[in-house]
Design a protein around this nucleic acid. Structure first.
Length: 923
RNA sequence: GGGCGCAUAGCUCAGCUGGUUAGAGCGCUACAUUCACAUUGUAGAGGUCAUAGGUUCAAGUCCUAUUGCGCCCACCA
């Protein structure tokens, strides 16, 4: 292990004038990795805090959504790490079945190859090669972002152990009757040529047509029943026409036979209450093999199921003359032919929505096929309970409803996919038994012989599992489940599974904990940070799997952040060309700038609208921090900053300005703690920003400049910097580390430091109020200077008249500082004496006077005073009105009433003084 | 068809359980460069908080309706 990079203290004065992230970020990240700063062990003395990363696809490249998602997680992890908890951020990637297969298929297509040319084994080999080569791209990019994941634990959903977890889950579900195989209408992607779950086939609106087709009656070919359809090509698979039994128009036709045009098949007219008489003609063509509703009708009325499509959506043999045509081509030809036969009544434009493949956006085809399904209702039950009882909380809470609504209407989950890249179903078939319509064997290992008949003629199911069938186990499979002897199992998950008795270690792994300890220690995890798109796909299913297999929730809080959009509110996507590449931002502005800007603009759960300029804020802030640190370093006597701040605060009589900045720092810390605990990252970020920039730099550092060698100031500015960067570290990890190592404590890392302890006793509102008076007075002088157009290089004479002795004392204490801030000689007086033509401002109950008569635009000055008088009068009127209201006095809390009274008194005082000024001008 | 979110400064957005004069960043205007920082500082202009009702002593904030924009879910062929 290499020591932390150290910096020669003598060289510290040579800090560059601008902060350059490129000089620091990669170097610091490397040093953190080398020191094992992200690694965490099961420590019984510590409270565990864990987050599992939403595993990015191995095909993924870092986009803004990832940047936001992972910045939030890193903030949480770094925060809790500094709080002294055993904070684990578990990283890994997802094999992303269809997406990855598509990518590799495209790659081999360049060699003129299809996956079928290679064959299954060779193709999968190619995918692994691709994965080795490109699969870690996103991991490298996460490192650029500063993600403090424990990389020694990195997982991949196709890892050997992980795959065993997947198999285990499938087998257990099968054994408990929650997995079944059957022929149903599923979403079929003709391009990917696989079944999809409902979630993978989102509906998109289309502008289509409603086609009215005429089906002649067998008995009387001149009479027709007209049916309306959006997909006329499916008519080739029609096996009935249905009408509502109450529909008078068709009552006498029910039971009659129609001749299906083009194929001349006889089909019956059936009656079913499912049919909506209002829609179309009230008669609906029934295609049981190509529509879910028709499928239900087909089952109910025992109709024939005629599949007219090949898996690639070309018409098949059952389509007769149309066989071989693509579905959309066939549509046109069929319409032509019907038109020719005068069987196309009309075409109406009709908006409709159709499922689209979420991977390739092809319109899906409802398709009858034999697939594997998970029975979801029993799994959903405890997962609904848990959220209802508040065991798992969504942030923001509104997602709770979305989750519950979906869960309460949950449908069975089609989990088999007709692709090659993924976890193969642990399903085997015995050819012998299949002859007797039996022979399905679900097993953790490939059986050598059929347990039923002893045959060795056994083969494995060709299908693989839905990618999400592995992701839903992520919060526990990553910790080695089920090779754990100590996991509490829910009774329902008990099976005949033979447990391994020997704990397993993953090869090539640096940590020495045994996986089962991890599982026990870190599960359930603390927070899940994710995007709304993925609630059904992933979050809901993890909750179900958690209860089913662990008997416990997978996480306590779910933080749902918004979607990153471009400045016009469009989703960022490559096809739209509106993508802002986070890596480009990192290169140009730095990872800290990216993180800070992103977080400060993202309100809880709200979508983020980004433009590139937005990142200047973070870059500028980093530079401000850098230069403030430089300034402090340049003015530092290390002997003066060794003392303990608290001890010094108690034993010494601290200057008002030092007490003020400490008060403000701790008030900021208090608020930031609250915000972080409530997932209000933007508020914490903005709070820290404005404290540091506007209070610490603009006021505090500027004020102490004139007295910079004062050891007390040195101690305070140094300690605040030191504490502040610890708080800021989770937001801007790199620059805070750089400042820490170069200025605070060379040879150590900020990552090992603890979160600053809240010294609530140093928060002092009275001190704040006193300083506010000084600031207001300084601002008044500056304001008048600007009106007088007196440049700052010219020293002016000012006096402040104030009858309150306490305020005068404050002024006297801070006179040098105040003077330097407005470049004035300031005298403090008790009484204001009118001198015509002077510029005067009223601050609280004091007069701030520039003793330079007749130089500036006295009319403008007068106008400003008149404006202030008007405003004060309006406010006084409104306050008087309020206070005259008996209901207000009666109902408002006493402190509010009191505050109103005080405010009125102050306003009246101010008004009197302003009117005095006006009178001095004459009139 | 159901549900959700948003509407506040020229732009992008904060504004917590209602309570002083509604904030920030960017942009704009004027001034300032031996000063830690021009990726800066100082000062300033800019808002009838979408509309209409209602609740309340008090509404940007709570309720209802309306309008506009965005999103999600749903088996209207």
């Amino acid at each position: 292990m290499k020591p932390a990079p150290t910096v020669d203290i003598k060289s510290m004065d040579e800090l560059p004038i601008r902060y350059n992230p490129q000089d620091t970020e990669d170097r610091l990240y490397r040093s953190w990795e080398e020191q094992g700063s992200f690694h965490v062990t099961c420590d019984p003395a510590k409270k565990p805090f864990s987050i599992v990363i939403p595993p990015p696809n191995v095909t993924g490249i870092l986009h803004m959504g990832h940047a936001l998602n992972n910045t939030i997680q890193d903030i949480l992890i770094r925060y809790h790490r500094m709080l002294g908890q055993a904070a684990l951020w578990m990283p890994g990637t997802d094999h992303a079945g269809i997406a990855t297969q598509n990518v590799v298929e495209r790659a081999i297509a360049k060699e003129g190859l299809k996956r079928q040319d290679l064959g299954r084994d060779k193709f999968i080999q190619r995918v692994w090669v691709w994965k080795e080569q490109y699969g870690s791209t996103i991991i490298k990019q996460l490192k650029k972002l500063g993600a403090s994941c424990d990389w020694t634990r990195e997982r991949f959903t196709m890892d050997e152990d992980y795959s065993k977890s997947v198999t285990e889950v499938f087998v257990r579900l099968y054994e408990s009757g929650l997995i079944y195989r059957g022929s149903y209408i599923i979403n079929w992607c003709p391009r990917c040529q696989t079944a999809l779950s409902d979630e993978e086939a989102p509906h998109r609106d289309l502008q289509g047509n409603l086609y009215y087709l005429k089906y002649p009656l067998k008995d009387n070919p001149d009479e027709f029943v007209v049916v309306a359809t959006t997909r006329p090509e499916t008519m080739l698979g029609d096996t009935a026409v249905a009408v509502n039994p109450k529909d008078k128009r068709y009552k006498k036709l029910v039971g009659k036979t129609l001749i299906l045009p083009l194929v001349d098949r006889e089909i019956k007219i059936i009656a079913d209450s499912m049919v909506d008489s209002e829609f179309g003609t009230g008669a609906v063509k029934v295609t049981p093999a190509h529509d879910p509703n028709d499928y239900a009708l087909g089952k109910k009325h025992k109709l024939d199921f005629i599949n007219v499509l090949h898996p690639d959506a070309r018409m098949n043999e059952a389509a007769g003359d149309y066989s071989g045509m693509d579905r959309f081509e066939a549509r046109e030809v069929i319409l032509e032919d019907l038109k020719e036969k005068n069987l196309l009544e009309k075409i109406e434009p009709h908006p409709l929505s159709a499922g689209h493949c979420y991977r390739c956006h092809t319109i899906i085809e409802p398709y009858l096929s034999k697939q594997w399904f998970v029975k979801m209702k029993p799994l959903a039950k405890p997962a609904i309970e848990a959220v209802k009882k508040g065991k798992i909380k969504f942030h923001p809470a509104r997602w709770t409803k979305v989750y519950l609504n979906w869960m309460e209407n949950i449908q069975d989950w089609c989990v088999s996919r007709q692709i090659w890249w993924g976890h193969r179903l642990p399903v085997y078939y015995c050819r012998e038994c299949l002859k007797k319509a039996e022979g399905v064997i679900v097993s953790r290992v490939k059986p050598d012989i059929c347990p039923a008949c002893g045959s060795t003629d056994i083969y494995q199911d060709e299908d693989v599992l839905d990618t999400w069938f592995s992701s839903w186990l992520w919060p526990f499979a990553t910790f080695g489940w089920p090779f754990s002897s100590s996991v509490v199992r829910s009774p329902s998950s008990e099976t005949a599974y033979e447990r391994r008795t020997t704990p397993r270690l993953r090869s090539g792994q640096a940590n020495d904990e045994r996986p089962e300890k991890d599982l026990e220690y870190f599960y359930p995890t603390s927070v899940l940070v994710t995007a709304p798109e993925i609630i059904f796909f992933w979050v809901a299913r993890m909750i179900m799997a958690g209860y089913k297999f662990m008997g416990e929730k997978p996480f306590s809080d779910v933080y749902i952040h918004g979607t990153v959009r471009d400045i016009e509110g469009k989703k960022m996507s490559k096809s739209l060309g509106n993508v802002i590449d986070p890596l480009e931002i990192i290169k140009e502005y730095g990872a800290d700038a990216l993180r800070f800007s992103l977080i400060s603009t993202t309100a809880q759960g709200q979508d983020v609208f980004l433009s590139k300029e937005r990142f200047e804020q973070g870059r500028n802030f980093a530079n401000k921090l850098w230069n403030a640190s430089r300034f402090i370093l340049m003015n530092l006597d290390r002997e003066h900053v060794k003392a303990d701040l608290c001890a010094a605060f108690i034993s010494q009589d601290f200057n008002l300005i030092d007490r003020w900045i400490l008060s403000r720092f701790y008030a900021t810390l208090k608020e930031a703690n609250k915000d972080l605990d409530n997932f209000k990252f933007n508020e914490a970020a903005n709070l820290l920003y404005s404290f540091f920039w506007h209070e610490f730099c603009d006021w505090y550092l500027e004020m102490i400049k004139s007295d910079i060698k004062n050891p007390q100031h040195e101690l305070v500015m140094y300690k605040i910097l030191e504490k502040f960067i610890r708080v800021l570290h989770s937001f801007m990890p790199f620059i805070t580390e750089e400042v820490w190592q170069r200025i605070i404590n060379p040879g150590t890392s900020i990552m090992q430091q603890s979160w600053p302890h809240l010294q609530a006793n140093m928060i002092d509102k009275k001190v704040d109020a006193r300083m506010d008076f000084i600031f207001a007075a300084v601002t008044a002088v500056r304001n008048m200077r600007a009106d007088l157009e007196i440049p700052l290089r010219d020293l002016i004479d000012v006096y402040i008249a104030c009858s309150d002795p306490a305020k005068r004392a404050v002024l006297v204490e801070l006179l040098p500082q105040a003077q330097s801030l407005c470049k004035a000689n300031i005298a403090v007086e008790q009484h204001y004496s009118k001198k015509p033509g002077e510029f005067v401002a009223v601050v609280e109950d004091a007069h701030v006077v520039i003793k330079l008569a007749g130089v500036g635009d006295i009319e403008k000055h007068k106008a400003k005073i008149m404006e202030k008088i008007a405003r004060a009068k309006a406010q006084i009127a409104s306050k008087k009105n309020t206070l005259a209201n008996a209901a207000f006095i009666k109902n408002a809390p006493p402190d509010i009433v009191e505050a109103e009274k005080t405010k009125l008194k102050e306003l009246e005082e101010t008004l009197k003084k302003l009117e005095g000024l006006r009178d001095d001008f004459g009139q």
